[in-house]
Design a protein around this nucleic acid. Sequence first.
DNA 1: CTGAAAGCGCTTACAG
DNA 2: CTGAAAGCGCTTACAG
Lengths: 335, 335
Amino acid sequence: MAMAQVRDVAALAGVSPATVSNALNHPHRVSARTLAKVQAAIEELGYVRNDAARQLRAGSNPAVGMIVLDAANPYFTDVAHGAEQHLAELGRPLLLGNSAQREEQELTYLRLFDEQRVAGVLIAPVGDVLPKLRTLKDHGTSVVIIDRKAGADEFSSVSVNDEQGGWLVADHLIDQGARRIAVIGGPGSLRQVRHRLHGTQQRADRTDGATVEFLDTGAMDTASGRETVQRLLERPRDEWPEAIFATNDLVALGALQVLARAGVEVPGEIMLAGYDDIEFAASATIPITSVRQPSEEMGRQAAELLRQAIEDPAAAVQHTVFQPELMVRESTSAH
Amino acid sequence: MAMAQVRDVAALAGVSPATVSNALNHPHRVSARTLAKVQAAIEELGYVRNDAARQLRAGSNPAVGMIVLDAANPYFTDVAHGAEQHLAELGRPLLLGNSAQREEQELTYLRLFDEQRVAGVLIAPVGDVLPKLRTLKDHGTSVVIIDRKAGADEFSSVSVNDEQGGWLVADHLIDQGARRIAVIGGPGSLRQVRHRLHGTQQRADRTDGATVEFLDTGAMDTASGRETVQRLLERPRDEWPEAIFATNDLVALGALQVLARAGVEVPGEIMLAGYDDIEFAASATIPITSVRQPSEEMGRQAAELLRQAIEDPAAAVQHTVFQPELMVRESTSAH
DNA sequence: CTGAAAGCGCTTACAG
DNA sequence: CTGAAAGCGCTTACAG
């Protein structure tokens, strides 16, 4: 509890508190002799700066807050990792929050970041957070949106062309002979889900007899995938889809578990595709066809756009759109 | 930038700043009428409290910092999730840091948390952080250690009996007929790795002809697992081990990828076991035998021990030790 | 290059 | 129940 303060350091070093502060924050303003004395005093007392006081006086918090949809999804840990690396280079700590696809959690973190007056926020949104993001901007916090272009006029963004991703999957499935396609994922309100579904539908519309059915899983995790496919298999055999397209790989893995347990042959009886191309999709019991997104690169780019927005809040917003890539594996191609 | 402050709220509500503060922090001290006026003013101005100022004056930060070894490992996301849930119930935000098994990163986060004067820290340590943890404690920050009992006299901890886990795996592998066992994981300095190896060795010592060889992968991820097993397979065929025990599932999944690519039969030619029992181990190409740890429960318990330590810093330290459980799957048991 | 003074935005005793 | 005053620990102009 013997918390040393600047004044203790100053006293021990035989200088003023202002000089200690300068030694800490603007070392070039201080003579080498003084700097050495101050550093020795800091060392001896084990002085650790009080961040709250520094922030209050300096009027800014260098940290960046990030909110992801699911901290347990390797796709998001990769995006976060990319962002963290770039931010570390900029000397900005990253505070990571997990909304777990819950609007309430999302708002809790946004409020926390607002109260902390962080320099910037990176967010993959669940709910309609635009009003809250505008508030943050009003308060001097820059914002970059990950995974969607909504609010396009106001905030820079990094995203992947999800409609094209859906199209690529549908094109492949139809090419493999599937006509009845079930798209599973959710909640349906999630932009990613809507766009991937839309792309699938658009491709299906081009082929006679191709139909798309959407089953809302409610969430994007393995448990939700299991439950949904469980229900699907309770239908009469001739009402099963020929292919299941899960809007992310966790849902696909859950689906695969249920299909395997039920003895359904993949891809023989039902083809299965996922999205995100997480490592575990390629390592699954039956390797899963998926859509690759440059996750780490997306995180880096989001951090870079944020850097630019922080540097010049009046600058024009920018949108980086990455292209998805289909990774074909055993779950859809019987060879 | 029209950042409203308490004084603006006070002016609009026609009360003093002190009353606004009371309305915010001790609503029961304020009349219903006043409370309503203050809340209306807060609403109208979009007032958001300045956390740095609050913390400075209040002298404490309710948040808790957590440092995990690998934010991309589902085991740690589960532990973090358990901790986050319990802390949320206590009204304490969780700040999550990822050391990525790097001592430098670990110290960076510890310094950040120290500067922020967080109420507590949960840490799964990489390096020798005891001196730094003592400093934190001196500064009034409570500490709970996850996954090890080092510093047992000074800090409460939550851990799993890793030696027993290693023993369980070895016992099973030997039972399945394996004698030459390769343990892969790393760095060897990591307590978890040492203990799991030690348990393996102890069991092997009881069986004639059973030998244990340790291969340091340097890190605990899939890439490290791949590289190590790649090198292993370059040995003459008759120098291959009969079983590989990876000290976590990510390493095991990496190992499995290389074995599959090389056409090595698992478990026929080489058995494979992992640790942590992450969901993806059970869903792998060949479902992987693993050791289950109650990850979420560990996180909750760590948060609970922290709560107690924060409440009474002078209380005796406590150690919760969970028991591991072997999950036998196809990767070690032919058919 | 160094220091005395002021003040960041809150909350906490204390008095009324 | 409410308010005037002080002060949390630092950094920022400013003067020397």
